[in-house]
């Protein structure tokens, strides 16, 4: 049996792959979204800033900021699921990844957001679940919460066009 790889080698490879993927989407950086990885599971954080506000009287997060947060989480989760296989199989070396060499990002076909509660002026978190991923189309569900995981403030479903893959 092959000896397992040292933990640091595995972590570094996966974290680098994720970082390169996230860097290829400038808008994620502008909004202030970061991703935390536990194995292949991702949790996104939308760090609060004043420019995310949509209603200054309440104040409350802008619906568009919430939609972008959910859509970014869904897209990255989907792309990460594809990239994970490529990296773990050794077909892709994260060191060599640039926006030009990364697998193409899935394209959003449609995205529907349910606004369940007012987005409060503080950090928000989101996790996405790839419900189905075929050769051409994928369906992803995503939920965002703030203080309490059991009380989501927004949820969304989206369909995505998968990039053409060789073979």
């Amino acid at each position: 049996m092959k000896r397992p790889e040292p933990v640091q080698v595995i972590k570094q490879r996966r974290d680098l792959g994720l970082a390169r993927l996230v860097e290829s989407v400038p808008y994620i950086g502008w909004l202030g979204i970061t991703f935390e990885r536990k194995g292949d599971e991702l949790t996104a954080t939308l760090g609060f800033s004043d420019r995310l506000i949509g209603n200054p009287m309440l104040p409350a997060l802008h619906g568009g900021a919430t939609a972008a947060f959910l859509e970014s989480t869904a897209t990255i989760q989907l792309a990460w699921t594809m990239l994970w296989d490529e990296i773990e199989s050794g077909r892709v070396d994260p060191e060599s990844l640039t926006p030009e060499t990364l697998p193409r990002l899935p394209k959003t076909i449609d995205f529907t957001v349910d606004y369940l509660r007012t987005g409060l002026p503080r950090d928000a978190y989101a996790r996405a679940r790839v419900v189905r991923s075929g050769r051409r189309y994928a369906s992803v569900q995503v939920e965002a919460w703030q203080d309490n995981r059991e009380r989501p403030y927004a949820a969304a479903t989206g369909h995505f066009l998968m990039p053409a893959r060789d073979g």
């Binding site: 949509g54 859509e71 995205f111």
Partner: peptide
Amino acid sequence: ARFIGDARTGVIHGGAVSALLDT
């Protein structure tokens, strides 16, 4: 350029378009 959704293509992020439509 800050609102780009795919660095390879330079296309604006769907989320920015969402924010515009929502507003």
